[in-house]
Write a protein that binds this DNA or RNA. Sequence first.
DNA 1: GCGTCCAGGTCTACC
DNA 2: GGTAGACCTGGACGC
Length: 305
Amino acid sequence: MKITLKVPENFNFWRTIYSHGWCALSPFEVDKDANCLKRVVELSTGKRLVIDVFQSSKDKLSIISSLNLTQRENSEVINQVRACLRLNEDYSEFYNEANKHRDFRWVAKTGAGRLLRAPTVFEDVIKMICTTNCSWALTEIMIENLCEKLGWQINDSRRLDSLSRWTFPTTEVIADVSEKYLRKEIRAGYRAPYLLELSQRIINGKLNIDSWRESTLSTEELFKEVRSIKGVGPYAAGNILKLLGRYDYLGIDSWCRKKYFEIHRNGRIASDKVIEKHYKPFGKWKGLFFWMDVTKHWYEKKFPF
DNA sequence: GCGTCCAGGTCTACC
DNA sequence: GGTAGACCTGGACGC
């Protein structure tokens, strides 16, 4: 079943897919041969399916669904894809700002800036915690384990690649397993109690993170709320905010730091305050300018994922 | 194959 | 407010 979706004029499919590492984490998957992004999708009707998303023309995306869908399910798939690819967000102000700076004119010209995200805030936050204090390889292992051991398995023999795939686990499922299981089986290590506490706070109604994407709180207040999650420090909170459409925080990690030193200081080390000062003129967009700056070479050379 | 060391953010205790 | 040490894992390295 095929669904067609119109995209904004400045939308760049591949720059959005490769905007950061999420495309390499289950249940996202990039199929370079088929030129598409795959995703295991779970619908409110209980249906679970695999979708292939690809750019069919300059202003259109096509979504191939592995199952026949009702009109309502169709709309839900479209809404999830729109949320993941940030199709509802207006980047004109960001591009206007980028065009004022010679070093960032490439951003608007190439339609960069949209950061891929999961259909739910919960998935984004769990993944972000799993990027902290470890190698990217370990992040991949943790997320793969979460999906394969706690997600719902999809076997669709009608697909050419009848591989097994898994949904991202629900909040309820993670809240229901033991800390020991998360620690040893998922390989989350000391992050296990953090994942558990987050899931249980949501289940108990003490934290409503799904409202964050439409939150009317100031970015500073929202940052404080995001920081209330154990295991989410300045790096993780800054980057979660970027996935909520707020770019006031840099979310600096060791990789970005190193990249910044290479680009702006000829390899010389400096404090985070120096980096903060550098991007201050970009105001509420500084986090996104920072990310564009340190990932520019991805677009000029080859994508890292 | 085994042991040791290091890198990677965040938390907690302490000053 | 700033700092030190602990947390846990995979990978690199030396033996």
